[in-house]
Amino acid sequence: MTTTHPNAMSDIEAHGHERSAEGEVQPTIELVTQEGKNKQLGVWLFIAAESVLFASFFAVYLALRHSIPNGPQPKDLFELPLVFVMTAILLTSSFTSVMAVMNMRQLKSSAMKGWLVLTWLLGFSFLLLEIYEFNHYVHMGHTFTSSAFGTAFYSLVGFHGAHVAFGLLWLMTLLLRNARREITPYTAPKVYSFSLYWHFVDLVWVFIFTIVYLMGKVG
């Protein structure tokens, strides 16, 4: 049996127009409360703003990617097999978080948690590979301070990495806090917000592997 968080119920009541009219499609669990709706929209707005933040770093990177007075060239640095593995891992983790949300909507709590744990593990391995990669570059003489290209590269890719790290902290908190809780209209929006964020992190990576790594080889 499902129970609604009292918070959620009062919201539904407080906003009479929220009650789904007859014949209308009912919202899924993360969207029944006013809070849930606000969260969903809020995360989307945040994502829209962050897109422009990343766009600015991309633009700076594109302007400076040939500005390398000293240090190795992108062609000599990037190793496509490693980047491909990282890409596959992050893509898969985005997909596992989709599965988590699908199970959440069916109120399958343990399946949802299972998929989220998998998402966390994949995200964590991505982060480890990125640390390995950066470390490797530093040994080759491509550092944050070695050239304008270096700063632009780490500003962009490192900023993305920081988003992955933050996402992992967020997900860990979610999992710990809700380890013993049911899926309710109070907890569901939290999971859904995370999944939107996580997809966005993956989405940015699609442009990173294309514009930074692949174009670094041919551009």
């Binding site: 009292p6 789904s20 899924t28 699908m102």
Partner: peptide, 27 residues
């Protein structure tokens, strides 16, 4: 406050199957 809630939708089997197909295809 009544704890009962049927205000949100639980996807039925058919919907789950088709959604699963779409999501996997996207992957």
């Amino acid at each position: 406050m009544s704890g009962e809630s049927s205000t949100f939708k639980r996807p039925d089997r058919r919907e789950i199957r088709s959604e699963l197909k779409v999501q996997t295809t996207a992957f």
